[in-house]
């Protein structure tokens, strides 16, 4: 059987979901026996590859780069899983949404009002992605197959989902495995 091509992506989130992924500890060794991790923030791959079987996406869609990445992931992945509360609900990343023109406001607040020196919102076109005015959960911008909520999802929950996936089954999470927060 062809080995499963697995990817993990980090959009607008705190990377806590990836930390929780790393908490899979020794089971990670079992995982790499069954699947190739072809793209991840913990790898050095620059480009999201074609033909990925399953992608776990951490984080909400908060800037243009996130949006572009989400679309690339969808086009190149057979199964997309919203990984953690930011991807599933927007969570803390989306807390700026109630503020009108939030992108401008949060930059001003962070880099002007609260800055001690060199006041000024960063602007590096082509290098720093432009913030979107509204942070969206992943399924608001691309079709998502499965949802793995939690802030972060605990390692056993991630394992339960991945075990099903690598066995070629649908991940079925039940009860408190799908608790937000």
């Amino acid at each position: 059987m062809e080995r499963l091509k697995l990817a993990t992506v980090w959009l607008a989130g705190c990377s806590g979901c990836h930390m929780s992924f790393l908490d899979l500890d020794e089971w990670l060794l079992e995982l790499v026996q069954l699947a190739d991790v072809v793209y991840s923030p913990v790898l050095d791959t620059k480009e999201f590859p074609e033909g990925v079987d399953v992608t776990l996406v951490e984080g909400a869609v908060a800037n243009e780069d996130n949006l572009h990445m989400a679309r690339t992931v969808r086009a190149r992945s057979k199964v997309v899983i919203s990984f953690g509360d930011c991807a599933v609900t927007g969570n803390v990343s989306a807390m700026r949404n109630p503020i009108p023109s939030s992108a401008k406001k949060v930059l001003e607040r962070s880099y002007v009002e609260l800055a001690d020196e060199r006041k000024g919102a960063p602007s590096e076109p082509e290098i720093l992605p432009i913030l979107l005015d509204r942070v969206d959960p992943l399924h608001a911008v691309i079709p998502v197959d499965y949802f793995l909520p939690g802030c972060p999802p605990s390692a056993p929950h991630i394992r339960a989902a991945l075990e099903a996936i690598v066995a070629g089954k649908k991940p079925v999470l039940e009860g408190r495995q799908i608790k937000f927060g």
């Binding site: 499963l4 079987d53 086009a75 057979k78 199964v79 079709p143 197959d145 070629g168 089954k169 649908k170």
Partner: peptide, 19 residues
């Protein structure tokens, strides 16, 4: 939107009760 690759792992669909 077309061009979604055909999955090896079952992707969710409207009738499978998961998604």
């Amino acid at each position: 939107t077309n061009g979604r690759p055909k999955p090896k792992v079952p992707a969710a669909s409207a009738d499978d009760g998961v998604y």
